[in-house]
Amino acid sequence: MICKNVQKNLSDYLEKKLSDSLQTRFEKHLKECPNCGAELKTLKMIVMEASSFERVVAPDSLWTRIENELEVTDEPFPTRVSNAVAELRQRLSHLFKFPVPVIQMAGVLAILVVGVFLGRTFFSTRENVNLGQQTAVQQAELKLISQRTEHYLEKSTILFLGIVNTEFLQEENSDWSTEKRVARNLLKEAAFLKGGLSRTKNERVKQLVEELELILLEIANLEEEQDIENIELVKSGIDRKGLLLKIYLHDLNPEQNLKSAKNIL
C-alpha cells in the first residue's frame, strides 16, 4: 500500500467508511508504517478534541440587543416595500421609461434603489436648475446629461445589485469578465458626466457619480485570481458608502439577479 493513498483516505478509515477488506489492509499498514501511524494519531486527536468542545450558551442580554435592532425596522417589510414602490412608481412614471425586461429581470426593487438615489439627488437639483435662466443650448445639454446620468446610475445599480447579491462564490463561478467590462464602460461614461455636471453646476449629482466611480474602478481592476476576496472588498465598499439601500434588497433572489445583471449589461 502506498502511504499517499493511505493518508488521503485516513478520514474515511477513521469513520469506518471503507470496505471491509480495505479497512483491514489499512489497519495492517497503519500498524507497520510509523509515518502513517503518526498521521492517524494526529487526525484522531483533532477529531476527538473537536467533537468534545463544550457547548457555549448565548447570554440573556443578546435577545435585548436583537429586539432593539428589530424595533428600528419594525414596520413589516412587505408594507414598507409596497408603500415605497407605489410612491416611487408615481414619482418615476413621467421621468423614467424603463424597458419592460429590465423591470422584470432586476425586479421592482432595483428601480426602488435607483429611485431612492435619484429622489435624493437628482430631482432636487434638476428643479433648481430649471428655475434659472437658460439658453436653449444649455437646456439641451442639461437634458442630455440628465438622461445619460440616469442611464449611468441605472446600469451601475444593476451591476452592484448583481455583485452584492452574489453570495457563496464558488471557484468555478469566478468569471467576472462581464462585470469588469461593464464597469470599464461605465467609467468612461463617468468621465464624460463629470465634465458635463460641473459645467451645469450639479455638484451633488457629480459627487454621487464620483462615489460610484470609485466602486466601479475597484470592479474594473479585479484580479481574476483573488476575485473572492476582492469582491468582498467591493461589496464592503458598497456597504460602507450606503450606496445600495440594502434594506430594500432582502427579497432579491441572488442567482436570478446575477444572471439578470449579466443579461442586461
Binding site: V56, A58, P59, L62, R65, I66, E69, L70, T73, F77, P78, H250, D251
Partner: peptide
Amino acid sequence: DAEDITQMAFVRVFQKIDS
C-alpha cells in the same frame, strides 16, 4: 464576535422570513 454574528443572523432571519 459570536454575539455580533448571532445578532446579525437573527435580525436577518426576521427580516427575510417572508422569503
